[in-house]
């Protein structure tokens, strides 16, 4: 294809996006659009999959059957969300094996929040309330992103996600209304998860290298800082309601802006965790890689069985 033809196609493509038309798998797209989407959708899928690990830690120790079935259902949902997203990503011409390889070799990233440990039951509450809360804020605008399969996957994800946040908040509320020790446990979890949750919404706009292009492609509809502000404004009154304190001495309502001002985020910590030096990076990857490797014989056996059945059917037909 000549340079002029490509330029022409690019123009048609940009116009389509500007008109809010969706891009579908077999449509022509610029290579950079494809690569950016593979990167973002697969990171998103990896985050869902790795995100099962910190919560899975508490399934066997949930304090009641009610809590246990809810947590189990939530973790199953994360698996489902990972699968919706992997298959959306595969429509861009990358195979599932390549995607797994990228995760297992450390080439692909996943949300760094999952590199923090879940040391008490209250952490399960904090994750649902804060981590899923931040995820929802991130994900809702993606329901109208330009790439069709991604937008459709996100609509399903968002529909299912709101139960996650509610179950987390209910856990926090119950603990906050419980014994002094229980309330302290809830406060401690909030203290540890608050700042990582704010970081989850991504680097500040000034530092975010992908924002401008992503806004143009509607892969992003709001900037990281806007999303973060929205998360804070929505979460602070919820903490007040259950009598917990947000661990930020600089947090203050700003009448003029109609929003909360908040303290400085420790971005060094963020980058340390992104680079692999968080408290659980290694543990998470080990768990993921060994689950994959130890499952090899099961996958092989299933294929061998499928082939045998197929052969049998053929023989009977003759």
């Amino acid at each position: 294809m000549s340079e002029k033809e490509v330029k022409n196609l690019e123009e048609i493509f940009e116009q389509k996006i500007a008109r809010d038309e969706k891009i579908e798998p077999k449509d022509w797209m610029p290579e950079k659009y494809r690569q950016t989407h593979i990167r973002q959708i697969s990171q998103h899928a990896h985050s869902e999959i790795v995100g099962m690990l910190p919560e899975g830690n508490w399934i066997t120790r949930a304090p009641s059957l009610r809590r246990k079935v809810a947590l189990l259902a939530k973790v199953q949902d994360e698996a489902g969300h990972g699968l919706y997203l992997y298959s959306a990503c595969e429509t861009l011409g990358v195979s599932r094996e390549e995607l797994y390889d990228q995760l297992h070799s450390g080439k692909a990233k996943y949300s760094s929040i999952f590199n923090y440990p879940t040391i008490t039951w209250a952490d399960i509450g904090a994750i649902g309330w804060l981590v899923d809360g931040a995820a929802i804020i991130n994900q809702v605008p993606l329901c109208s992103t330009s790439y069709g399969p991604y937008a459709r996957a996100m609509i399903r994800v968002c529909k299912e996600e709101s139960f996650h946040q509610r179950q987390g908040f209910e856990i926090m509320m119950t603990l906050a209304n419980g014994t002094p020790e229980q309330k302290e446990m809830a406060q401690d979890a909030l203290n540890r998860w608050w700042w990582p949750s704010l970081m989850m919404l991504g680097p500040t706009d000034a530092e975010s290298i992908h924002t401008e292009q992503s806004m143009k492609w509607k892969l992003k509809r709001k900037t990281n800082d806007e999303l973060r502000q929205q998360f804070i404004d929505q979460t602070v009154p919820q903490a007040d309601l259950i009598g917990l304190t947000i661990p930020d001495p600089d947090l203050k309502w700003n009448e003029e802006r109609g929003s909360y001002d908040f303290g400085e985020i420790d971005w060094d910590e963020f980058w340390q965790v992104v680079k692999g030096h968080g408290p659980c990076n290694r543990e998470r990857m080990n768990a993921r890689v060994s689950a994959w490797e130890e499952g090899t014989w099961v996958r092989d056996a299933a294929m061998a069985y499928a082939k045998k059945q197929e052969d049998k059917k053929l023989k009977q037909a003759i």
Partner: peptide
């Protein structure tokens, strides 16, 4: 509704039930 990986048709049906019809 989407796609998934499975070794054979029967497994594909069961996986589809678990992945796409949990509710």
């Amino acid at each position: 509704f989407g796609s998934l990986h499975a070794a054979d048709a029967e497994m594909a049906l069961e996986n589809a039930r678990d992945v796409y019809t949990r509710r």
